[in-house]
């Protein structure tokens, strides 16, 4: 073998090794959750603010507390089918430990060590507070079991290789918030509700060619993934609504000219309408602080 070929072979192995190392699954740290006890009542608020039911509800009956899944989420890379996350130990996630649950939400990794697709918005949930995760689990543990089996995603090659998602995460699963400057506790609470919980950016922010959110156009509107039309931008400059207008929309679904929200936003509002007034005000304050 010529020297050149040898060098190339070694580089390829090293390169492959680096990719393998970079794409490894990362787990949540169990010590973050030690000594925390779950409060199911507060967990329900977390469940609403994070909008879990909007995707995981029973697709047939539309029941929001029966987390059977089954909804199809279209994307340019293929179609995802939302899984069963009810308390059923076989078909759902009954029996998961808090650390396994937190690893799914914060790191996008399954108990078996596989990467999840980012259609599950863990790039937002990665910012969730440990206590909120423990409370959320305590609440979800009170919900009924469903024995519905999961359907497979309709994902063509190469997008069906989960290991490669590890590299995707290197680029897009970030510890840092998008908005780094939050003057005052209300805007800070709003940032938590929008960026960590409500995953508003998943719909309202455009994506780049790898399906990652384009943080430089944060909440400035995006094409509708399920067909024609645009999901509107919701920054202060684009929206041009007052703080009261935004808070009223999030509680009633009415725009300032009394049109009524539709599409997936109607599901979001079913959740935000059940949050306390202060939370809707905080979301509005955050949006108004955007350029």
């Amino acid at each position: 073998m010529s020297k050149l070929l040898k060098t190339a072979a070694i580089l390829a192995i090293l390169g492959g090794g680096t990719a393998w190392w970079l794409s490894r699954p990362i787990h949540a740290d169990p010590s973050d959750f030690e000594g925390l006890t779950g409060d199911a009542t507060h967990g329900e608020q977390v469940f609403l603010a994070a909008g879990c039911a909007s995707c995981h509800m029973n697709e047939e009956t539309k029941e929001k507390t029966v987390l059977t899944g089954g909804m199809e989420l279209p994307s340019p890379f293929g179609s995802f089918v939302v899984p069963n996350i009810s308390t059923d130990p076989e078909h759902g996630i009954g029996g998961w430990t808090v650390t396994e649950f937190a690893t799914a939400l914060q790191k996008g990794v399954s108990p078996k060590g596989q990467h999840y697709y980012p259609a599950f918005p863990y790039t937002s949930y990665t910012h969730m507070a440990a206590q909120d995760i423990v409370d959320l689990k305590a609440y979800m543990d009170t919900l009924p079991a469903s024995s519905q089996e999961n359907a497979d995603h309709d994902m063509p090659f190469p997008f069906n290789i989960r290991r490669s998602l590890g590299l995707w995460k290197q680029l897009y699963l970030k510890d840092s918030y998008v908005v780094t400057n939050t003057p005052g506790s209300e805007i800070e609470r709003g940032r938590y509700l929008v960026e960590a919980m409500g995953h508003c950016g998943e719909c309202h922010t455009p994506r780049d060619q790898f399906g990652g959110l384009d943080r430089s156009a944060w909440l400035q509107g995006a094409p509708n993934p399920s067909g024609k039309g645009e999901i509107p931008g919701i920054t202060r400059g684009i929206l041009n609504w007052s703080k009261e207008d935004i808070a009223y929309y999030l509680s009633s679904g009415f725009t300032p000219d009394y049109d009524s929200a539709g599409g997936h936003m109607a599901l979001v509002i079913e959740n935000t309408s059940k949050l306390p007034d202060e939370d809707r005000d905080a979301i509005a304050a955050y949006l108004l602080a955007l350029p």
């Binding site: 645009e230 679904g253 009415f254 009524s260 599409g263 997936h264 109607a266």
Partner: peptide
């Protein structure tokens, strides 16, 4: 009554109206 009306508008727009 306003809340109920909002619910009626929303539930139809949710399924039958595309975004702008």
């Amino acid at each position: 009554a306003m809340g109920a009306l909002g619910g009626a508008c929303k539930s139809c727009h949710e399924t039958y109206r595309a975004p702008q």
